[in-house]
Design a protein around this nucleic acid. Structure first.
Lengths: 334, 334
DNA sequence: TTGTATGCGTTATCAG
DNA sequence: CTGATAACGCATACAA
């Protein structure tokens, strides 16, 4: 008979089964145990409805089987996708996720670093643009989209290749003069390379281009000003736009439409990320699709790999293009 | 000097500060301690970079300060919103979130129930349509949108009121014949009341209406068939539609447009949920907005309330209407 | 192969 | 108000 207080423990199971505590532990952990004993223990576990206590195990082994995921939020659909896939990948490996929403707030990030230390997480996956984040040396740490140093593995899509692909695609779809629009963190991170790739392809193709890059905090109206400055008698100087993210692309398109420009007839637009309507319907705009599933897999297997030293410091995963109705190549899914 | 292995413990701090272990514990937990001692301990903590070990605390106190959140996924924008706000509310109260994505899969839900037992979570917040979910009696449990029994608190938006409001709004906007479209779980849950509210208002107003309700698993094409059956010489029998969710509304609108119908000129459409583009821009369709923030707050404060017996078994929160460009009342945000 | 005993880091009880 | 010490549930080294 188990104690009446709380849930049954291994000691309760041992008593119920008439075996030693250690034997129960071995059965629970799938180690080698005589058939007779195993059976007795399993029956006792069933009778008592025993569930092991992960606090006890964590205290003893100093492993929590928990990975902290630091990400700005979950309402941005791209982040939501990432959370989704990372959680799934971790679950496959019987790991738990400790959610940390930074909200782009440096102080919150610092508090989270402290919190995850208290919780003795086995590793951290972080998507943060905080330039001077203090990275714990003693916890496996993997970043997304942001390269800190060779000792901190970074997983990212092939942003350069994506920019390059976007420019080539616009050219292929008949564009004669294009522009790149972006707003984002001032610091250099992987997504910054979208611009380089785009420029590189334009130069290579002899395609005239312009760049409009804003830093975080700049007002969106700056883009409107830019566009109206390039609008002459209802005709835009550009017939193709590559925009840093799908979200920004969407907003830019609203502006274009407000000025009576048709998308894609007058201007073709390609975004970046691969956001779908409601997460599962059509792409919101024509886009360079990030391989979210692969990014998640890479983050998880990297953060869990025992020897981070053996792991490459930058894992770059291939992107692809998908039409989404804002280019003149049909609207079918990829 | 602390032991070289692992992070410093309270014992290390005690030694460093020249006080007893218990005193360190009292300082860490903000209990009354003499000024002299407190200072010595705090300095030692600073020198050693001590962070308390939550596994030890959990083992001792049998409280993990963790709440499990069971939800189908995070890629559906409504769920993403919910996850976001629930996480924020829990964080305010220094609680952690254990993420559980059910993917609408009954087996996964069962595994999660087991997992959260092992992790000794302090409570569970669940959004699940599983009709015969086994609810742990011994863990505070709060559901969203689904009423199980009076002993399990349920938090939901005022779905009936929302349906009612939608019908009145359509009437107010000049609709003469309307329809309600929905697809969803066959079982009766709170969102089912959207239909009742809608019908109730239609009857009250003498507004002719029709209902097209599909069960989960039915093909979307059934809606197309329904609409084409009601399409005569390019004119739809309805000039107003109320659709069960924003996502379905969006898809219905695509179909309407394919048939040359203009929204909102020919047909006005109101959805339900309050989904915004990219989570933060305009509403995707005109919609009945769920009070997600309040729902989250209610879930959290309920699941954390020590005496679940004192808590109402159904918490119903008010919704509101927001135009989103698919009705003839402008497109400005609320 | 199984039993026994110790300690993981913490809180809480009790004595001083 | 502080110090010493015993649990909490588990894994594991060691003894049988």
């Amino acid at each position: 008979m188990a104690r009446e207080t709380g849930s049954p423990t291994m000691a309760d199971v041992a008593r119920e089964a008439g075996v030693a505590l250690g034997t129960v532990s071995r059965v629970v952990n799938g180690q080698q145990v005589g058939e007779e004993f195993r059976k007795k223990v399993e029956e006792a576990i069933g009778r008592l409805g025993y569930q092991y206590n992960s606090s006890g195990r964590a205290l003893r082994t100093d492993r929590t089987n928990t990975i902290a995921l630091i990400i700005p939020n979950t309402i941005n659909p791209y982040f939501a996708l990432l959370v989704h896939h990372i959680n799934l990948e971790l679950e496959k490996r019987d790991k738990k996720v400790l959610l940390c929403f930074s909200e782009y707030d440096r102080n919150r990030e610092l508090e989270y670093i402290q919190m995850v230390r208290q919780n003795r997480v086995d590793g951290i996956i972080a998507l943060t643009y905080n330039p001077n984040l203090i990275i714990p040396e003693d916890i496996p740490f993997v970043t997304i989209d942001r390269f800190f140093s060779v000792s901190v593995p970074c997983v990212a899509a092939d942003n350069f290749g994506g920019g390059y692909l976007a420019a080539r695609k616009l050219a292929e779809l008949g564009c004669r003069r294009v522009a790149f629009l972006r707003i984002g963190s001032a610091l250099t991170h992987e997504p910054s390379k979208r611009k380089e790739g785009f420029i590189s392809a334009c130069v290579e193709l002899g395609l005239p281009f312009e760049v409009m890059a804003l830093e975080d905090g700049a007002p969106f109206s700056a883009f409107e000003d830019f566009l109206t400055a390039h609008l002459h008698q209802g005709v835009l100087d550009f017939d193709g736009l590559f925009v840093g993210t799908d979200m920004l692309a969407w907003r830019i398109i609203q502006v274009l439409k407000k000025h009576g420009l048709r998308v894609p007839e007058d201007v073709q637009v390609i975004g970046f990320d691969g956001i779908r309507m409601f997460g599962e319907l059509d792409y919101v705009v024509s886009t360079i699709v990030q391989p979210v599933q692969e990014i998640a897999e890479a983050c998880v297997s990297t953060v869990l790999s025992r020897h981070l030293s053996n792991v490459p410091s930058l894992i770059c995963l291939p992107v692809h293009y998908a039409p989404g109705g804002t280019t003149r190549d049909g609207n079918s899914a990829d």
